[in-house]
């Protein structure tokens, strides 16, 4: 009686344990996750639907991988601390990654990031031993080869072109590894000359600015000189116009005066002639400040007659 009870209790414990195992074998798939059901290590089911599921205990295990998470990977620098709302992010450079040579054997520093997401959990988890490490090597290969394809000046100026060229090469290489990821974006963060030559590059920028400045100065000079010349020219022409008008007016005035005198003259020519002469002499005499009349006498002495304008003295 009792032995059966104990046996039953034992069986009960075993059933209870089995039930517990079944309960612990429930698993949940979140939105955007892919679950691989492995039966003795072999992938026997792939499930993308969010929800609650159950797998056979012991024989099956479940591997989950997000297909929506975007991994941001860095090349040429690393983030030391992500920024918070009150402080900016800090970075430190990875010189040995960032320093690259260009087609014209110059040296340039490049910092880049790439954004990837997993599109196939099985490939991502089982096709390469270390998928992120493999991606980093592939990215380095593609990025450097594209930079090496360019001359320094082109590399410095064509960030967007480099991004556009790196992306398909990178995708192609990763497709060859069948790594199960999508490349969302390749972004060149920074492409600059090394510190050692930075000042020489800045000097070129200065020289460019100076050139612009000289240009401005020339324009300023032009704006000073040419309008001034135009103003002078204008005033010269105005003067000439005035002179012309004056000369003509004077001539007309003179002629009018002459005509007037002449009208009188033809009435009695002799008298008018004499009158005019006398009037003129009179004016001359009046105007002259000092007047001396000298007479050459027979005895050789000079007779001297000062005629001072009585009123003037």
């Amino acid at each position: 009686m009792l032995s059966r009870k104990i046996t039953l209790a034992g069986i009960g414990v075993i059933i209870l344990m089995a039930l517990l195992m079944c309960v612990f074998s429930l698993y949940r798939i979140e939105e955007g996750e892919q679950a691989l059901v492995l039966t003795f290590g072999e992938v026997t089911d792939i499930n993308n639907e969010a929800g609650l599921y159950w797998h056979i205990p012991i024989a099956q295990t479940v591997q989950k991988q997000s297909l929506t998470e975007i991994y941001t990977l860095e090349y040429g620098f690393r983030t030391a601390s992500a920024g918070t709302t009150s402080s900016g992010a800090t970075y430190y450079p990875r010189e040995e990654e960032a320093v690259m040579i260009t087609r014209d054997s110059s040296i340039v520093n490049v910092e880049a990031i790439y954004l990837v997401s997993v599109n196939d959990a099985e490939k991502f988890l089982y096709n390469t031993r270390a998928p992120f490490e493999t991606m980093q090597f592939a990215f380095e290969t593609v990025l450097r080869r594209n930079i090496q394809n360019l001359n320094l000046d082109d590399a410095l100026l064509n960030k967007l072109d480099i991004e556009a060229a790196v992306l398909p090469d990178f995708e192609e290489l990763l497709a060859a590894y069948d790594i199960g990821v999508d490349v969302q974006e390749v972004r060149i963060q920074n492409i600059i000359v090394p510190d050692e030559v930075m000042s020489a590059y800045q000097d070129v920028t200065n020289a460019k600015n100076e050139k612009t400045q000289r240009n401005d100065e020339a324009e300023k000079y032009y704006n000073e000189v040419v309008p001034a010349a135009r103003a002078e020219a204008y005033s010269m022409i105005q003067d000439a116009e005035a002179y012309k008008a004056e000369t003509i007016a004077t001539a007309q005035g003179d002629v009018a005066l002459f005509n007037e005198v002449y009208q009188k003259y033809i009435l009695s020519p002799d008298i008018t002639r004499r009158r005019l002469l006398i009037e003129t002499i009179e004016k001359i005499m009046n105007n002259a400040e000092h007047k001396y009349i000298v007479e050459d006498s027979e005895d050789g002495t000079l007779k001297f007659l000062p005629l001072e304008g009585g009123a003037n003295e």
């Binding site: 004016k283 105007n287 002259a288 001396y292």
Partner: peptide, 16 residues
Amino acid sequence: LETSLGSNTTLVLDSD
């Protein structure tokens, strides 16, 4: 004659 012999002139004339 009139304009050329203006004021400030000193005239020294022979009586002839």
